[in-house]
Simulated scan of single mutants.
Amino acid sequence: MKNNKFNTLNDKEWLRLTGIKKSTFNKMLDILQVAEIEKFKKGGKTNKLSLENRLLMTLSYWQEYQTYFHLGKNFGISEANCYRNIKWIEDILIKNSDFQQLAGKKSTNKWLF
């Protein structure tokens, strides 16, 4: 991950921040990277946020129940873009057999890996 302030977190701090282990985060990131490559084969604009930050934003939304408005302000994007990014990540992860249990879940606490 490019953001150094998150690289310095130990495993326990990472779990407290995101609600998931680093290995689960990396697994999610791998799935999303493949999906993003497929998405851009059809064309389109690159996203303002890195994939890592979009996943962190989604995990923050699941963990803390912040509004899209607040998340958008924290990550420097509009409320609508925040919603679209989180919805896309949720849809991609739910389609994967490893994360199908996300469908209907409101908290990451129930599916810690």
Rank of each mutant, 00 (worst) to 15 (best):
M1T: 07
M1Y: 05
N3W: 01
K5I: 09
F6G: 00
N7L: 15
E13S: 08
W14S: 06
W14P: 00
L17R: 09
L17M: 10
T18H: 10
I20Q: 03
T24P: 01
T24L: 05
N26W: 01
I31Y: 01
V34C: 10
E36T: 08
E38Q: 10
E38L: 08
K39P: 00
K39H: 11
K41E: 15
T46F: 08
T46C: 08
N47Q: 12
N47E: 12
K48Y: 03
L49H: 02
S50E: 06
E52G: 06
R54C: 03
L55A: 04
L56H: 04
L56G: 09
T58S: 11
T58H: 05
L59C: 09
Y61W: 13
W62G: 12
W62V: 07
E64P: 01
E64Q: 15
Y65L: 10
T67I: 06
T67N: 04
T67G: 13
Y68C: 15
Y68W: 13
F69D: 13
F69Q: 15
N74M: 12
N74Q: 14
I77E: 00
E79K: 15
N81I: 01
N81T: 06
C82D: 03
C82Y: 02
R84E: 09
K87S: 14
W88Y: 12
I89G: 06
E90S: 12
E90M: 14
D91W: 03
I94W: 04
N96Y: 02
S97R: 12
S97F: 06
Q100G: 15
A103C: 11
A103L: 13
K105V: 12
K105N: 06
S107F: 12
T108F: 13
N109W: 10
N109F: 11
W111F: 14
L112G: 05
